[in-house]
Design a protein around this nucleic acid. Structure first.
Lengths: 312, 312
DNA sequence: CTGTTTCTATAAATTTTATTGATAGTTTTT
DNA sequence: AAAAACTATCAATAAAATTTATAGAAACAG
């Protein structure tokens, strides 16, 4: 049994297809067929049920795949130990970012980071919180930036910053003339929200519920991006809430529609999160340092109240 | 990086010697030299400090060895999954047994076990509790039989039986004419004990302390085996305590010196213990079944009070 | 139902890797 | 100072992984 064989098994299990798996492994398909057969012969058991199309794992196969994933991941940590010893910060690093953080945060730290750590090959992907959790667990991404706390058993969190919510209230809205907004003013029924799956949406719903004890009624309108949200709001379809960093780059006319909250300002907690195994921890800490550095100048709220991103 | 290379690293780390390690791995010494060099080259770091004699691990080397042990052990679990699936009970199994259990328990279950599970190659070793804990942790033995509870973080326990203590009181002893002995009668100063390191000794000390609150004074005499203990006691050097199973095969004349305790009878808990990773669990359960079976007929005490084997 | 596509297994050739036996060079021991 | 113990190195060999080519089976499209 070799680590390579286990890796091949994982690839086939994931792709449910020898040919595709072979491509991902950068070998030819017969290599996979033969190596996996060899492993199956040695163990004297079938890992894959090849009668099913697409190919399926047998019952033992499933258990073997879980253990194989373990072993392969643990084998990566050997290189990790060496990197850590050398203080080496480099190599490929896959980072997931939730959509409502991506467009504002990424431009703020990316240049800084690649200048400071040129050996790191950052691969950034926009992902929902749900996708992030799953991909951290199976090792498809090394870390992610998301709204926290998530209370996931196998995932650790390090807070990067607290980002206040700011109300965006168009001219014709009942609250437009309020100078400062109070949380108790919010009414989920005239609030524009992002579509389902956005944790930001869940955060806002929690925020409203916290003060109104409202049930899950239907909402007026749902959108996929905060950009759209602002435009819909301008059309008079309701007010909305924006994460603070988004308010920095809207145009002057629209800035007039921004209303800050009374203290304690509702805010979301944004963290870098990663698997508890702490693989590539040096890079995670490097990211944390750079991001905390750039944020320190950008957000200066004192008295905030954290809104959970978890749907309750 | 291969599992074999990691295995070689473990062997050299353990033996502090390439030549001996090579023998244990059933390969020649150049194989180890070359494979370990290759791994060191790939990682671009030295695992062993070859200037020291005998050879030593570097700082990174120590971390790598720990991780390598992880990986190698986890790789064994693949075969384990298959065995478990097949209900296969066989292969090599290393069992440690503490000295005060070995001579009485082993003859009771060994024949039964090898008859019932002929495919298991049992390798039994007499070990102190301390050695057992260390060898379970580093995987040198698969399980052990010891007095419990041990409260070891990485070790699980399954109770096999409770074995009462019986007083052995020679003719000239002050307690000889007592029909039944009470725990409060015990005096650690005229009690013969096994030498340091025997958990049975610690159990007895705990037993005395429990009722007399005595400090760690020096003891009259110390012996390495229960056999010797009885003989020394016959010579008038004091009374002693025997685990119940030992009292079954002493001669008739000596049997007259046995005095049972008043209830609740003090007893030790004897368990099969194993690493929390539960490797080879089928065999452990098979052992548990067989031993529980043979003991059921041999020990029939009802009201017992468990004495901890841990030195307090 | 038939030709086409998709996919896996197999075989032989080739490349790569692991292992060995012989030996040289060190260090340690006597 | 000689012997013993130990590791590294080298060339030869054995073992293995991988590839190219291809056969055969199943799924698919018309």
């Amino acid at each position: 049994m070799t680590i390579t064989q286990l890796y091949y098994v994982l690839a086939v299990a994931e792709n449910q297809n020898f040919t595709k798996a072979a491509e991902k492994c950068f070998v030819t398909q017969p290599t996979l067929s033969m190596q996996i057969q060899k492993l199956e012969d040695q163990l004297d058991i079938l890992i894959f049920d090849r009668t099913k199309k697409p190919i399926e794992l047998t019952d033992v196969g499933k258990k073997i795949v879980n253990q194989a994933r373990n072993i392969v991941n643990e084998s990566y940590r050997i290189q990790d130990i060496v990197d850590q010893q050398k203080g080496f910060i480099g190599g490929e690093f896959k980072l997931g970012i939730i959509p409502t953080v991506m467009p504002t945060l990424l431009p703020m730290f990316l240049k800084n980071f690649i200048k400071k750590h040129p050996k790191v090959k950052l691969k950034i992907e926009e992902l929902s919180t749900e996708e992030i959790i799953s991909k951290i667990n199976d090792g498809h991404i090394d870390a992610a930036i998301a709204a926290t706390p998530l209370e996931e058993e196998n995932i650790k969190e390090r807070v990067l910053y607290f980002e206040p919510f700011v109300s965006y209230i168009p001219k014709n809205h009942r609250l437009h003339n309020h100078k400062k907004i109070d949380i108790s003013d919010l009414d989920i029924d005239d609030m524009l929200l992002l579509e389902d799956g956005h944790c930001f949406r869940d955060g806002v719903i929690n925020l409203c519920k916290a003060f109104k004890n409202q049930t899950d009624d239907q909402f007026q309108l749902e959108s996929g991006s905060i950009e759209t949200l602002i435009k819909l709001s301008n059309e008079g379809l309701g007010m909305t809430l924006l994460p603070y960093l988004h308010t920095l780059d809207i145009n002057d006319k629209e800035k007039e529609n921004l209303h800050h909250f009374n203290e304690p300002t509702p805010a979301r907690e944004v963290s870098i999160i990663y698997h508890k195994s702490e693989l590539k921890m040096q890079i995670i800490e490097a990211l944390q340092d750079v991001i905390s550095g750039v944020i320190r100048g950008a957000i200066a709220f004192q008295n905030v109240e954290i809104i959970s991103p978890l749907a309750k």
